[in-house]
Lab assay of single mutants.
Amino acid sequence: MISLIAALAVDRVIGMENAMPWNLPADLAWFKRNTLNKPVIMGRHTWESIGRPLPGRKNIILSSQPGTDDRVTWVKSVDEAIAACGDVPEIMVIGGGRVYEQFLPKAQKLYLTHIDAEVEGDTHFPDYEPDDWESVFSEFHDADAQNSHSYCFEILERR
C-alpha cells in the first residue's frame, strides 16, 4: 500500500524555501509514529532540507540527478522507488510537492495534518478530489505552549 503523509496549511501550503513555516512538535511526533519502520520516499529537495537519513526507516530518494550519499537509496523513477521498498505492507511518501503529485494517483491512504495557519509558501500539496477519499480518523488539537497553531490529524482512505 502506498501512503502519503503531509502537513498542510491553508491553501495546501506545505513548504517555503525548503522548510515548513510553522513550529508543531506534535506533528513531528505524528510523522515519526506513522513512518517508523517503514520505507520513506522523498525528493532530493526534501532530502536536502532534512540533511540526514531518517533513523529507523529505509530512505529512498527520487531524483533525476541521483546523489552520492550511500546512506540512502537513490532512484530515478516512481517504479524504481516502489521496487526499492521491497515487499512491505506500507510505503510512506513524505514529499515534496512534485513527489506527492507523482504518487497521489497510486496512493491508497493519506495521513494529513491540517494546520490552521495562513502562511506564504512556494510548495503545495497537490489538489485531490475529496469525494474519492473517506475520512477514517480525525483528531483536532488547539494551539498550545509547544505548538504554534491549532491542527487536525486526519487519515483518508481511497474509496
Rank of each mutant, 00 (worst) to 15 (best):
I5F: 04
I5C: 01
L8I: 00
L8S: 03
L8G: 01
A9I: 07
V10M: 00
V10A: 14
D11R: 14
V13N: 03
V13Y: 01
V13T: 11
M16F: 00
M16G: 02
E17Y: 02
A19I: 12
A19V: 03
M20Q: 00
P25V: 04
A26Q: 04
L28S: 02
K32S: 05
R33V: 11
R33N: 15
N34F: 06
N34C: 09
K38E: 03
P39K: 04
I41V: 15
I41C: 15
M42F: 15
H45C: 05
H45R: 05
S49M: 02
G51D: 13
P53H: 15
P53V: 10
P53Y: 14
P53K: 11
P53S: 14
P55N: 13
P55K: 12
K58N: 11
N59A: 14
I60A: 02
I61T: 02
I61P: 01
S64W: 09
S64P: 03
P66R: 14
P66I: 13
T68I: 11
T68V: 11
T68L: 14
D70H: 13
R71E: 13
R71M: 10
T73V: 13
W74F: 07
V75S: 11
S77T: 15
E80V: 09
A81G: 05
A84H: 12
A84D: 05
C85D: 01
G86P: 13
D87I: 09
D87V: 09
V88I: 13
P89W: 13
P89F: 05
E90M: 04
E90T: 01
I94S: 02
I94G: 01
G97V: 01
R98E: 03
V99R: 03
F103A: 06
K106P: 05
L112S: 01
H114W: 13
D116K: 15
E118W: 14
E120W: 08
G121M: 00
H124F: 04
P126E: 03
P126A: 07
D127L: 13
D127K: 14
Y128A: 03
D131F: 07
E134P: 08
E134F: 09
S138Q: 14
F140N: 13
D142S: 09
A143K: 09
A145Q: 09
Q146C: 12
Q146G: 08
S148M: 00
H149E: 05
C152V: 09
F153S: 03
F153N: 04
E154M: 15
E154V: 13
I155F: 03
E157C: 11
E157S: 10
